[in-house]
Design a protein around this nucleic acid. Structure first.
Lengths: 357, 357
DNA sequence: CTGAAAGCGCTAACAT
DNA sequence: ATGTTAGCGCTTTCAG
């Protein structure tokens, strides 16, 4: 079946090609009854406008691109959902590309978006120690998400230091005195969490010990560290373990249990990046939820502002702050732990409404 | 900064426009040193080919589109990751659109993909009772995911009946005798799970009771049902509750606990759609993981086959079968429950390798 | 191996 | 209100 073009529709109705184009793009310029005829023919023939052609011809597109490192972390999903919602609310579409943790691929998609006549790009870059903008001089509106960068105005990120501070304050509230922080803080995000933890620890006179292992902060790394910690003699053992990621924390719980100790009875464990996809262990994990949904929305708002020529002040992140999710891994009274709703990974809802009254 | 076009590159190097085009699309046709000059100029000028133009000019695109109902279910993420991996392995890109649970939006994206000169489309349609293909005669290769449909060859779905059977077999292995299945089985997927459960129950002489509530199978629905069940006198109470979704099951656990009973001591509870994003409750949930990652890969293989003119036999889904994930909500000996890895939401890895040796 | 020229399907001027 | 036409930037013949 040959593709139906705008000319076919025109011929079918008996009007000219330009009129059909108008019917599609400026319906008010076309006499209602002609319009009806045209719309009828369009659906009868199954005509679908060729996007490439209409873009080439000059229509500015109403599509944003979002490049994500990978679809296996709730934070990225929150970003995607938030960006989708805000885009849609402003009449834009959102196309998402997942780089499958491959930085070459990330670059590939970025270039694709660039060439695809897209209205703007959101990027959550791969976590690396030395991140730089892909394009020194972006040719289209671009916003980098989850990137901490002093100079650049188009980088927005959640408050990782606050995440660290919160988790340590929780440790203190639990009566802990010796905290072990596990994971390699190779990336800025993690280093900031460590800083937040250390700052808060200093204020509370809690001792902090940093333990890294491996290059990738896997559950296996967490497991090994957890086991080693659990095998220490009682006096030398931390009473609270913070995983720099939930994956590490989940691994640590297993390691501790493999060594014969119990969580939370012998040691408390918490993560700090609010990733339900890592909550597959046998003990529900306490963690800090970061406001990814709001970050995605904000990113789109930045894009919109750049398009409109305005420069959004970075401060408009508003009240979207990380929040503690207290669960059994740091709670010796499980009855108190209530269910956490994750309806659409919108942090506001998922922590705001217990939904179970 | 004006956009750099292919002509600018040509002028810079001192060759003709066509040569630059060849350098990009058929490098072997261009003298190596000219090629080097051209590539140099391209990066110096920051030239990015205009995708719309190249598509218009006839290059068939190497991009697949994936339309997902929403990014809040692990199944959809698995599909996306699998589809991305398989696409990339075959030299294709994958663009993902999330419909935000809005069927108008789903249609909108589908039409966009159709017009975007895309090589093929994967769709996981919104769950509805009466689903029909969006296009009676798809104009581009199209595969529907998670759709059970007799006639259509381009619909592939996981074995929902098997999921039901597996969970009931597990109930039996736990020594349960009275099973309550909770949730409204409005959609084919859920109805098939119910059928699998009932079939298996008949064989094992286990009694099954179906309890629906509400339109959306929310955690709140699960909660209310769970509480009512827990409030029944002991003899009339089921000993095993199956949520048709993990969300329902998680809600049910809270409801049961709100009524003062314990999971798993007083009642066992399981979900059956393997959704880590619903595992936010206070008791780790037993469930059935469906092979979404493999489904995504298979979908892309179908697309590839349609493009190549072959018709893939529907049977090639192979060994990708649902698997039981046994966790604390059906296990009275929590020490035995081992950690479940979800490295990249690839079911094969995530259930195959305990990773924690 | 390189250059010139004809569209791809559509939109937006402009003309009627 | 509707018809006509000139490109949008690129790829691909087809000549040199």
């Amino acid at each position: 079946m040959a593709k139906v073009r705008i000319g076919d529709v025109a011929r079918e109705v008996g009007v000219s090609l330009g009129t059909v184009s108008n019917a599609i793009n400026h319906p008010e310029r076309v006499k209602p009854e002609t319009l009806a005829l045209i719309n009828d023919a369009i659906s009868r023939l199954g005509y679908v406008p060729n996007q490439a052609a209409r873009q080439l011809a000059g229509t500015e597109s109403r599509v944003f691109g979002l490049a994500l490192p990978r679809l296996d972390h709730a934070f990225s999903l929150q970003i995607a959902n938030g960006a989708q919602a805000e885009s849609h609310a402003n009449g834009y579409d959102l196309l998402i590309a997942s780089a499958g943790n491959d930085d070459l691929l990330e670059n590939h998609y970025l270039r694709y978006f660039l060439g695809a006549h897209i209205a703007g790009v959101l990027v959550q870059p791969m976590a690396t120690s030395s991140w730089r903008p892909a394009l020194d001089k972006p040719m289209i509106p671009t916003v980098y998400l989850d990137v901490h960068h002093q100079g650049l105005a188009n980088c927005i990120a959640p408050d990782n230091e606050a995440q660290g501070r919160l988790i340590l304050q929780h440790a203190r509230a639990c009566g802990s005195e010796r905290v072990a922080v596990i994971g390699e803080a190779r990336f800025t995000q993690l280093a900031l969490r460590v800083r937040g933890i250390c700052d808060a620890a200093r204020e509370s006179c809690i001792s902090v010990e940093l333990i890294g292992r491996g290059d990738w902060n896997t559950a296996e790394d967490g497991f090994q560290i957890g086991r080693r910690l659990a095998e220490r003699p009682v006096g030398h053992r931390p009473d609270f373990v913070v995983g720099l990621t939930d994956v590490l924390a989940a691994g640590a719980i297993d390691g501790i249990m493999a060594a014969g100790l119990s969580v939370p009875d012998d040691m408390l464990v918490a993560g700090c990046d609010g990733n339900p996809l890592a909550w597959s262990g046998s003990v529900p994990l306490t963690t800090i939820a970061s406001p990814g949904y709001e970050l995605g929305r904000l990113g789109v708002r930045h894009l919109l502002a750049q398009i409109g020529g305005k420069e959004l002040t970075s401060s408009s992140y508003g009240h979207a702050v990380p929040k503690l999710i207290e669960r059994a891994s740091t709670c010796r009274n499980p009855g108190l732990v209530s269910h956490v709703e994750v309806p659409d990974l919108n942090l506001a809802e998922y922590l705001g409404s217990p939904s179970i009254a």
